[in-house]
Amino acid sequence: MDKSILMDWYRQMVLIRRFEQRCAELYQQGKIGGFLHLYIGQEAVAVGTIAAKADGDHVITAYRDHGHALAVGSDTNFVMAEMLGKATGVSKGKGGSMHLVDVERHFWGGYAIVGGHLPLATGIALAEQYKETGNAVLCYFGDGSTNIGYFHEALNLASVWNLPVVWIAENNQYGMGTAVDRASAVSELIKKASAYGMEGQRVNGMDVLEVYESSKAALDRARSGQGPQFIEMMTYRYEGHSMGDPLRYRTKDEVEKWREDDPIGVLERHILQDLDVDKDSLETIDQEVEQQIEEAVIFAEESPLPAAEELFTDIYVEA
């Protein structure tokens, strides 16, 4: 893999992590309200999969959506403004953390009803097949979604209609605080995919290269008319489900063990050890990311709140 590409993935993962760490601070300060679901630990999944997509391919995900928004290339200023509920936000301040969007980049947003966006992905893929574009859809969801009816109906229909969807199960081991084996009859989620005619593949979601390679191959298969694909990304979220999670369901040792395989650390070691890159180059990236985030916070804080009349706009396209 080209060095500049790996450096770019490193930048994206650091951006997502530092962006979210800054969001956590802003949340503690009361500047971000509502729910805040952090993606920290899972960065390789969004970055590696989205790196594999073609320009016309689509992205849709659940409410843990900051990583996907940043990975598709949404402007950090506008994303941060959305976090703060400002008029300049990607959803004009009406969506918030869980409902980021960037249709120009084919990012259809974050959805906050578990499983609810899976049928939307089926429909988005149907439109691509209908228009014979050759584009595919990347649909992300957590392990918890695989127990809800939506999952089964959406996967089944996508297979029946041979639609170009790549289902990305982000298995971060817990649906809120309930471990996979306490909620799912089978712990290997790919077994569920087999019920809908998909072979499925289990991938180390902490290694952005593995994520990329598997996604690229799956997207190619989906685009070439081989129907929907299913990848189970084995990953981990370091933080709680949302802010204020008491974390009673897991041990610190477990978290530390996963941190040994930290996706940023894994890529950093690869870049430093196997490529001719010195530590300073990565630190330069770190500093540039810090600067970018600081500018985003300033932009967001200085942006106006939505005007009062915005309350009644965009309920309907046609008044």
């Binding site: 259809w108 049928p119 089926t122 429909g123 439109a127 109906e153 959406a154």
Partner: peptide, 16 residues
């Protein structure tokens, strides 16, 4: 499967 009838129709509409 009404959940996906509703949801997939909505998704197809969103995408043109």
């Amino acid at each position: 499967a009404e959940m996906v009838i509703g949801g997939a129709a909505a998704g197809a509409a969103m995408n043109g």
